[in-house]
Write a protein that binds this DNA or RNA. Structure first.
Lengths: 115, 115
DNA sequence: TGGATAGTTAACCTACTGGTTGACTTTCCA
DNA sequence: TGGAAAGTCAACCAGTAGGTTAACTATCCA
């Protein structure tokens, strides 16, 4: 039996699976923003945005700094890099295989299993 | 208002958010497998694995070929590459920023806002 | 031909998601 | 000092997720 417990990746990919949250990440890529600034472009309530931010914080994709009554949010790029790394292995591995297959189909002949 | 409709990424990241499904991807990275072979290491029922495979298929991370009563599944690496690309933008962008900050903190001085 | 094998489908259950509204806390500032 | 502003928290709701078991379909093979 396999257990494969990696709650970090669970939270990261779950956070990335929502279009509103990806849009928030896109907005924060321009630079830090307050909760109000983040919520402005969206057609949903402020509490809804607040919830999305909590999901992003739990995944450590976003952090916030409270200054007075304003909460300033910014990206934590390292976490995005972690997800990126996980995908790199499989995406890279298989693109390589595809390239080999591609070469094979083009009859280059000499690409068979050189690993 | 922002809409940010990208159902492909929704499905891809949602599929990746489950540890069992990531384990299935890991198994399929070794090469194509039947549903039975895939399910063997897991402590869940076959129908549960069957559901996970459908989620992976809907996300176009996996495809299957039916041969007689056996369903042979394999990875679709291009889809993993799509998710990889989305992350590349933000992870790359911000790592670059981090590097700049890092340099700044090391007092290199000449890295301020050269973009 | 009929039993074993491979796998899906259907119905069900519990838990979680993403949204809402209303009430609340804290801070700012005239 | 008191109202406006920034944001969270709590309670609620409909829909979906991930698991189960039981029943089913289709294929293989002795």
């Amino acid at each position: 039996m396999v257990n494969y417990q990696t709650p970090d990746l669970d939270r990261i990919f779950h956070a990335l699976a929502d279009p509103t949250r990806r849009a928030i990440i896109g907005a924060l890529a321009e630079g830090p923003k307050t909760v109000g600034e983040i919520s402005r472009p969206f057609d949903i309530s402020l509490p809804a945005v607040s919830k999305h931010l909590k999901v992003l914080e739990r995944a450590r994709l976003v952090t916030r700094e409270v200054r007075g009554r304003e909460h300033h949010c910014r990206l934590l790029p390292q976490t995005l890099a972690d997800a990126h790394d996980w995908l790199s292995f499989y995406a890279g591995f298989w693109e390589q295989r595809l390239d080999a297959l591609d070469a094979l189909l083009r009859n280059d002949g000499d690409v068979c299993d050189e690993s």
